[in-house]
């Protein structure tokens, strides 16, 4: 099948490419754009490791064709850190609260939590757990992921942060 021309804004940069219609967005990001932060976990719309932000929505990029993202604004984990290179509050929260062990789910978790906090800046624990229900973690039992998101919510709301024990 003929390749199609697509243009998207990925982490602030305009990117133009030719893609086969059947190319999934996750493959386009990882293999064409070399953004290997979003992971392929289950490849069946369950695990959320491939989660990216597309036009203000958290989406599983294994379940979107790259051609559908023509004209879209996309953020991956690579676009989360602050422009000066310091960590985003969520990245800092995951580090401070030990929100990861193997780290495989973390890029999807952080990008999903980013959208959740945009919609609900001060979520309850239940709202956090319901909000990240599309992201599976097989290591942590979620306790410290919830704490990491709470840390980020507090920091983003301007609360003075206490240093966690390292």
């Amino acid at each position: 099948m003929a390749k199609m021309h697509v243009k998207m804004n990925v982490n602030g940069a305009e990117v133009e490419s030719l893609v086969e219609p059947r190319t999934l967005l996750i493959h386009h990001l990882r293999e064409t754009l070399n953004l290997t932060g979003p992971h392929i976990g289950c490849d069946t719309t369950h695990c959320g490791a491939c989660t990216i932000d597309m036009d203000g929505k958290s989406v599983k990029s294994c379940t979107v064709f790259a051609v559908q993202a023509d004209g879209a604004m996309i953020t991956t984990i690579e676009g989360m850190a602050n422009p000066d290179g310091t960590l985003h509050a969520l990245q800092e929260g995951f580090r401070m609260m030990h929100g990861l062990q193997c780290g495989f789910c973390t890029p999807g978790m952080i990008v999903r939590a980013h959208r959740l906090l945009k919609e609900i800046p001060n979520p309850t624990e239940d709202e956090i757990r319901f909000g990240i229900a599309g992201n599976l973690c097989r290591c942590t039992g979620y306790q410290n992921i919830v704490k990491a998101i709470q840390y980020a919510a507090a920091k983003l709301s301007g609360a003075p942060m206490q240093e966690a024990a390292e």
């Binding site: 719309t45 989660t51 929505k57 958290s58 599983k60 979107v64 999903r112 959740l116 909000g131 599309g134």
Partner: peptide, 9 residues
Amino acid sequence: IADPQVRYM
């Protein structure tokens, strides 16, 4: 229905 990501799409 499904999970948050699926409900966005």
